[in-house]
Design a binder for these strands. Sequence first.
DNA 1: TGTATATTTTACCATGTAGTTAAATACACT
DNA 2: AGTGTATTTAACTACATGGTAAAATATACA
Lengths: 112, 112
Amino acid sequence: MTTDQLNRTFAALSDPTRRAILAGLAKGEATVTEVAAPFAVSLPAISKHLKVLEHAGLITRGRDAQWRPCRLKAAPLEDAADWLEHYRQFWEGSLDRLDEHLRQIQKGRTDE
Amino acid sequence: MTTDQLNRTFAALSDPTRRAILAGLAKGEATVTEVAAPFAVSLPAISKHLKVLEHAGLITRGRDAQWRPCRLKAAPLEDAADWLEHYRQFWEGSLDRLDEHLRQIQKGRTDE
DNA sequence: TGTATATTTTACCATGTAGTTAAATACACT
DNA sequence: AGTGTATTTAACTACATGGTAAAATATACA
């Protein structure tokens, strides 16, 4: 897993339309028109979103006559989840707030 | 948790410098100069990154004379992790690839 | 009041994204 | 060959990001 891959994954997820597209594809493969149906934007806009998702490795696209069925590829999401896991202790223990401060005082600033 | 918040969180994480900044702050609070030390970019560039992180709610900044100590606030990361969790089944079971295809064939396209 | 240090703000440039409409392409079918 | 449907590409606008250098601001301290 490269850093660039993680960049692209998080960037792809930063748009709500793209997250909704992935949610739709979680129910099964769909054509571009089917993917676009719930959204109030043009087909070219959806086509661009799909290109971003494909570039991030989050979907693959097949070919069935004039249809281009899209399918979820969740593998890169695992890397994103793995990255976030490292911070679980900080949100679970509130180590990002007061506890962190107290810990710093107690052990006397070991870092930086 | 708003959609905008999630947008900002994922967008903030899409830059490797910002992810590295968060990794540094995981070791404890640090001033802007300390945060910037490992990176080959200018202070204004770091200042911008910190602004993005602050806007995403991922750090807070205090005031200590002319220093602006930065501190990790991991709470928004939990929401990002929660969003990703919904897809765990897809990467664990390879449901995004062949299994998905077979499942579709077996139960006959219930969706779309 | 200066001076040194820390940080931000202000232009400025280049690039990527998000959207549009209109045109082009791909395929099936008659 | 011609038509209908699906999708992408092209050309365009607007805005955010990521970077820079130079100037401004904030604070401590002599």
